[in-house]
Design a protein around this nucleic acid. Structure first.
Lengths: 207, 207
DNA sequence: TGTACATCAGTGAACGCGCGTTCACTGATGTAC
DNA sequence: TGTACATCAGTGAACGCGCGTTCACTGATGTAC
């Protein structure tokens, strides 16, 4: 990173940056993380290689930005879901987990190469922190939403349980992208009912 | 792959091949799949680059062999577990899922860079099939073990449920390798109890 | 037990290629007057 | 509304490097007699 990367000033630049990320997602799906290159990304976006470095400090910055963009979109889905169902308490949330999983899957499907982005975040030592931070953030939000309704449980013991639930939700979504021998809706429903049972189990232990 | 790769004839060769795989696992953890190279692997194993090509057709063959070796070890754990608990029926298996998860985790911990191997299998388009096939195989074995005790459920509807359970088991194991904010044993117990409930739910639907 | 010899394991040197990245630059955009 | 000008976006050419892989070879191993 020779020169600090400034955020785009012009409309054209914002479009170019977004195009670079879209293209990077496509190439990640086609070539995989070990084959993707900055030169490939620039070429596919209709740019020469140096143009990429106006927007990203280095190769990993591209992939990191790509990951963050996807996770922000997923977080937006979560926020909307929480706004709607958290006021209804644990039972309301538990009953609508399937809804959350479907909406999240829709985001994943809309993003070019989304599964591959998630995998790259998983598979590259330089990028693991992005995914980890995002999953932790999601867990924090869920704890915030659930804790008020579970006065008998302290946050410290709630966190690991919800962290596991988050991981399972994302794992199910990723699995559905590669496993074509199972019906997506049925498995999402199954996942939802498992998570629902786990969540309701928390309240049950209080009484 | 210029010349068909023959399996090693001498003891020295078998040791060399195993050493190449061990070293590849270490490097995968240190450098990640986008940085690892055949030259690096050979150098670390104390060999010159061409020696590697006596054992593996190309770079992906190394990673594929590495993945298969790990999955074979995991399968051995599963087979032992099934031999022990399958005769006891669904309830016996359901009660010992935690045991399976722990033993599987032990295998993962023993292999150098095991998490990274699993991630590489996940993240490289050329390698996804290895992981997918292994998870399907595990699912098949579980279906074989469970089906006789669930005469009311046909294999077609059993398969997706167990496939999901397999994915969740592996996902939990992988998560524990990177998430240090949660106690491993507690989360394995939690995972086991979720899977247990899901499994017992199958029998409950029969009555 | 010793040795000749066939086979197997590993080497030294090299290849063409595409990688990530940088430089000094030209062309496009938007704004102040 | 027109234009001069500062700033921003993208270019052309090039770099050193390590990659994956191949070749014709030498040294090590094990076996038949």
């Amino acid at each position: 990173m020779s020169v600090a990367v400034r955020s785009p000033q012009q409309d054209r630049a914002r479009r170019t940056r977004a195009r670079l990320l879209d293209v990077a997602g496509e190439l990640l799906a086609e070539a995989g993380i070990e084959r993707i290159s900055t030169n490939m990304i620039a070429a596919r976006a209709g740019l020469t290689p140096p143009a990429l470095y106006r927007y990203f400090g280095d190769k990993y910055a591209v992939l990191e930005a790509l990951g963050r963009r996807l996770m922000e979109r997923q977080n937006a889905v979560l926020d909307a879901w929480l706004a709607r169902h958290a006021p209804g308490g644990i039972a309301s949330m538990a009953d609508h987990i399937g809804d959350l999983l479907s909406r999240n899957a829709a985001v994943t499907r809309a993003e070019p190469g989304a599964v591959w982005i998630l995998r790259a975040l998983h598979a590259s030592p330089q990028l693991v922190h992005v995914r980890l931070e995002s999953h932790r953030h999601v867990t924090d939000r869920l704890v915030d939403a659930c804790a008020p309704h579970l006065p008998g449980i302290d946050r410290k013991s709630l966190w690991p349980r919800l962290r596991l639930a988050v991981e399972i939700g994302f794992a199910a979504d990723e699995m559905l992208c590669e496993e074509d021998r199972i019906p997506a809706d049925a498995v999402r429903a199954e996942t939802a009912s498992m998570l629902r049972a786990a969540l309701l189990d928390l309240t049950a232990r209080l009484s």
